[in-house]
């Protein structure tokens, strides 16, 4: 049965290992924003993140922000498709201790293996609901690698961020693949009913 968890970031390994695929998560605390260029900068160009990511959640985003004096203000923060950034995920988890990746669409087996090995999860956000996400971000606390904006490394502070669905857990379960496998099973029946076979 699906459980709802209210958590605070950064997360411990124990907390993350208590989450199961299908559970719902909300959390408070710091959240890091990353995108393709951020991770190319870190992994392909060899620039380690200038901030400790241990236990942190990272979200796949390219935020619209506005600069006001020496601060950044949010305009619209939404989530992008994760699969493009799959290859960086084992590094984020294994090397930098990230414990949650937030995105839409899921990641592949290599990421799932790293999640199982080190204790991390993939949390699926509701795509298209950027107005809600933006509302739940209290502040843009810092922007690192600023020259890469809108694909820099962002530290947000969030309040009751969610609902997020645990779509890949640290026990090897992958919700999208489970749903896909069930579709495969049902498909002959559906084809028959539609009269296409």
């Amino acid at each position: 049965m699906s459980k709802t968890h209210h958590l605070t970031s950064p997360f411990s390994e124990e907390v993350i290992r208590s989450l199961n695929a299908g559970d719902i998560v909300y959390f408070d605390g710091p959240l890091f924003g990353i995108r393709d260029l951020t991770q190319i900068h870190i992994f392909d160009k060899g620039n380690p993140p200038p901030v400790d990511l241990t236990g942190m959640p990272c979200i796949h985003t390219a935020p619209s922000l506005r600069r006001v004096g020496d601060k950044w203000e949010k305009i619209c923060v939404g989530t992008t498709t994760s699969t493009r950034m799959d290859r960086f995920t084992p590094g984020l988890i294994g090397q930098y201790g990230v414990r949650a990746i937030i995105g839409k669409g899921g990641l592949y087996q290599g990421s799932l293996d790293a999640m199982q090995k080190y204790g991390a999860v993939y949390l699926a956000i509701v795509g298209g609901a950027a107005s809600l996400e933006t509302e739940q971000i209290e502040e843009v606390e810092a922007v690192y690698f600023e020259e890469l904006h809108p694909e820099a490394l962002y530290r947000f502070r969030v309040k009751n961020f969610g609902p997020l669905t645990v779509a890949m857990d640290s026990h090897g379960r992958h919700l999208y693949e489970e749903v896909g496998a069930k579709i495969k099973e049902k498909l002959p029946e559906i084809y028959k009913k539609l009269g296409v076979i």
Binding site: I24, C76, A129, S131, P163
Partner: peptide, 28 residues
């Protein structure tokens, strides 16, 4: 499905916020 229902909850909240704050619903 409970997880699916929570997706709808988020959708309705997002629509409300876009309505009241006159902001973009989706960033794209």
């Amino acid at each position: 499905n409970p997880a699916a229902r929570s997706v709808f909850d988020a959708i309705f909240k997002a629509i409300d916020i876009a309505d009241t704050k006159k902001t973009l619903l989706c960033q794209d």
